[in-house]
Amino acid sequence: MNSLNIRSLSVHDLLKQIKENQKKYQNIKFNHHIKPLKNPMEIRSIRRKIAKLKTEYNKKINGRKI
């Protein structure tokens, strides 16, 4: 999901995506502790996606344009 797609989401959709990605992040991180992942960079990419979603959510809630 690129930044243009993230900007077009509504506040409700952003919250939904944040929660889904946080669950996915927790599961991947837990599984990585048990058995190392083939591609550990997935952890970083999911964490960054969550940060992008939260940033856009905060922009919409606060009514700012950055």
Rank of each mutant, 00 (worst) to 15 (best):
M1Y: 07
L4Q: 14
N5A: 12
I6H: 04
R7K: 15
L9Q: 11
L9G: 03
S10F: 10
V11I: 15
V11Q: 09
L14P: 07
L14Y: 05
L15K: 14
K16E: 14
K16I: 08
K16S: 15
I18F: 04
I18N: 10
K19A: 14
K23D: 13
K24Q: 04
K24S: 05
Y25K: 09
Q26F: 11
N27I: 09
N27G: 08
N27P: 01
I28L: 15
K29N: 09
F30C: 01
N31Y: 11
N31I: 00
H32T: 06
H32R: 01
H32L: 04
H32K: 02
H33P: 00
I34C: 01
K35F: 03
P36S: 10
K38D: 12
K38C: 02
N39Q: 11
N39S: 09
M41T: 06
M41C: 08
M41K: 12
E42Q: 13
E42A: 03
I43N: 04
S45A: 14
S45W: 09
S45H: 03
I46A: 07
R47C: 03
R48Q: 14
K49Q: 01
I50Q: 05
K52D: 11
K52S: 13
E56I: 04
E56F: 10
Y57D: 02
N58G: 00
N58H: 06
K59G: 00
K59T: 03
K60I: 04
K60G: 03
I61R: 04
N62W: 06
N62V: 05
G63N: 00
R64M: 04
R64G: 00
K65M: 02
K65L: 09
I66C: 00
I66L: 09
